[in-house]
């Protein structure tokens, strides 16, 4: 499903080059549930952005479902993001002027789904992340955890094939976090490929495989059973 070969992402900051991802190779099959762990600034979000077709590598090759991403047009990338990828951003990225349900509807608008159906689906997904009663609140009227759940709901709105979650439980208490993990396991059983960035080893251990990065390189890549925290 996801095949990354010798991929680098460099940022030129004046005279110095920041190697956010440095010659990294990674393969993830369809239906896997992978945790990505690593210290802050190790390049986890950068990797997620590339997998999510938002950012493009400085060098190396990224193949998604057999297609080489570098050769795709902007519009095709937009379509892939819309139809196949659900993205939960580390900073949520909700539209501040729109209500929770409208935020969840956003990807559905670009998928061309008519208003009525859109609303029904968004309401249903919000219920799934336990946000009933908060549908018409704007992000600034919601708690951090509630916002995070709106972001998760939005990522799930189009029934993505791949769910990319950057710290999806960062703002949640253990109980709500556990509910989200339950939801992720459900999604995996439905065949969704899950890639999750987390700092929390307990959360990481909920996945089936753990990838540890440091300085833009993979240092550990093990099934969760063999992974020593």
């Amino acid at each position: 499903m996801i095949k990354i070969e010798n991929l680098s992402r460099h940022y030129q900051m004046g005279p110095t080059t920041v190697k956010a991802i440095d010659d990294l190779s990674l393969k993830i099959s369809a239906g896997e549930f992978v945790s990505i762990v690593g210290p802050s600034g190790s390049g986890k979000s950068t990797l997620m952005n590339i997998i999510g077709c938002l950012d493009s590598p400085s060098s190396g090759k990224y193949t998604l479902a057999g297609e080489e991403v570098a050769g795709l047009s902007r519009d095709r990338l937009a379509e892939i993001r819309n139809k196949y990828i659900g993205f939960v951003f580390q900073s949520f990225n909700l539209l501040g002027r729109e209500s929770a349900v409208e935020n969840v509807e956003l990807p559905l608008i670009y998928a061309g789904i008519p208003p009525k159906e859109r609303r029904e689906r968004a309401m249903e997904i919000l219920k799934r992340v336990e946000l009933q009663g908060r549908e018409f609140h704007q992000p600034n009227e919601l708690s951090g955890g509630q916002r995070q759940r709106v972001a998760i709901a939005r990522a799930l709105a189009v029934n993505p094939k791949i769910l990319l979650a950057d710290e999806p439980t960062g703002a949640l208490d253990t109980k709500t976090g556990e509910q989200i993990m339950e939801l992720f396991r459900e999604l995996q059983s439905e065949g969704v490929t899950l890639i999750m960035v987390t700092h929390d080893p307990d959360v990481a251990a909920q996945a089936k495989r753990v990838v540890q990065v440091r300085d833009g390189k993979i240092v550990v890549d093990l099934p969760v059973g063999e992974w020593i925290r």
Binding site: G52, L54, R74, D75, A78, E79, R81, N82, K83, F87, F89, N93, L94, L95, L106, P107, Y110, A111, R154, V158
Partner: peptide, 14 residues
């Protein structure tokens, strides 16, 4: 930022 969010969620240039 709003434009970025919309694009990330599948809005095309058009």
């Amino acid at each position: 930022r709003e434009i970025g969010i919309r694009m990330a969620l599948g809005a095309k240039s058009s």
